[in-house]
Computed example of a mutant assay.
Amino acid sequence: MSDDAGLFAAGDAGPGPEEGAAPPPVDPSAPLAVRMRPRTLDEVVGQQHLLRANSPLRRLVEGRGGSSVILYGPPGTGKTTLANLVATSSGRHFVALSALSAGVKDVRAVIEDARTRQIHGRRTVLFIDEVHRFSKSQQDALLAAVENGIVLLVAATTENPHFSVIAPLLSRSLIAELQGLDQAGVATVIRRAVADERGYAGALEVTDAAVEDIVRLSGGDARRSLTILEAAAGAAEDDVVTPETVELSLDAAPVRYDRDGDQ
């Protein structure tokens, strides 16, 4: 789903599928959270306050909008998922940079490639994970490209962008605040992974009590819930996950801390 800190480096995820085309095959060796990443808006759990009919973010994902967007919210709420959906909605070219490793040179190289691609009628979606880690000079390097539509910027951050993103970039972007999933939403994510062919295809049984434990431990983080489920499945006897299995698979319940104390 930072939303997927370290998962993306500078590179090209390639064009999205054409409308109506079959989804790309899923690598069975990939982590469960990667295999279960939503492929369409209909598969997204939560964030309905942002994805209601004709909302700016829904129009953007559906390829009917052109504004850059900053996705702000806690881990595991779907920031990377929405970035991927924006890219694949109309076959846009998708490039992802991680602010942990990319510099001004990388940003300028992406922009030059995007400028060339625009001449041939194809727009580029630039996804920047952990955008709050970009320096002012790195953010400044984006301004003209965002202003002129050379790139459609989709940036993700776990920190309030009003304090971590420069004002000129904020003024050129929509800001969408994602919320942690409620208990029902996390339970839906878990049960879908148990039933879906990308997950366990019904071959794994998870008791209601175990689902409740995973929901409690995940703290509204969908990716965390799937990580716990995958660990528990590996420890399960006779393909049945119980609360005891969940407990055995974890050293301690995950607790999120940050230096500012607001999580």
Results as ranks from 00 to 15, higher is better:
Asn148Cys: 10
Gly149Asp: 10
Gly149Ser: 09
Ile150Pro: 04
Val151Ile: 13
Leu152His: 04
Leu152Thr: 05
Leu153Asn: 03
Val154Phe: 06
Thr158Phe: 07
Asn160Leu: 07
Pro161Val: 07
Pro161Lys: 06
Phe163Gly: 01
Val165Gln: 10
Ile166Lys: 10
Ile166Arg: 11
Leu169His: 13
Leu169Lys: 13
Leu170Asp: 14
Leu170Pro: 14
Leu170Glu: 15
Leu170Thr: 14
Ser171Arg: 15
Ser171Ala: 15
Ser173Ala: 15
Ser173Asp: 13
Ser173Tyr: 14
Ile175Trp: 06
Ile175Ala: 10
Glu177Arg: 10
Leu178Ser: 13
Gln179Cys: 09
Gly180Met: 13
Leu181Phe: 02
Asp182Thr: 09
Asp182Glu: 12
Asp182Trp: 10
Val186Arg: 00
Val189Ile: 06
Arg192Ser: 04
Ala193Gln: 02
Ala193Cys: 03
Ala195Tyr: 00
Ala195Val: 00
Ala201Arg: 08
Ala203Leu: 00
Glu205Tyr: 05
Ala209Gln: 11
Ala209Phe: 03
Val211Ile: 13
Asp213Glu: 15
Asp213Lys: 13
Asp213Ile: 07
Val215Phe: 05
Arg216Ala: 15
Leu217Glu: 09
Ser218Met: 09
Gly219Arg: 09
Gly220Glu: 13
Asp221Ser: 07
Ala222Tyr: 02
Arg224Glu: 11
Thr227Arg: 01
Thr227Met: 02
Ile228Trp: 07
Glu230Asp: 13
Gly234Asn: 15
Ala235Gly: 06
Ala235Met: 12
Ala236Asn: 03
Asp238Val: 00
Asp238Tyr: 01
Val240Pro: 05
Val240Asn: 04
Val240Phe: 08
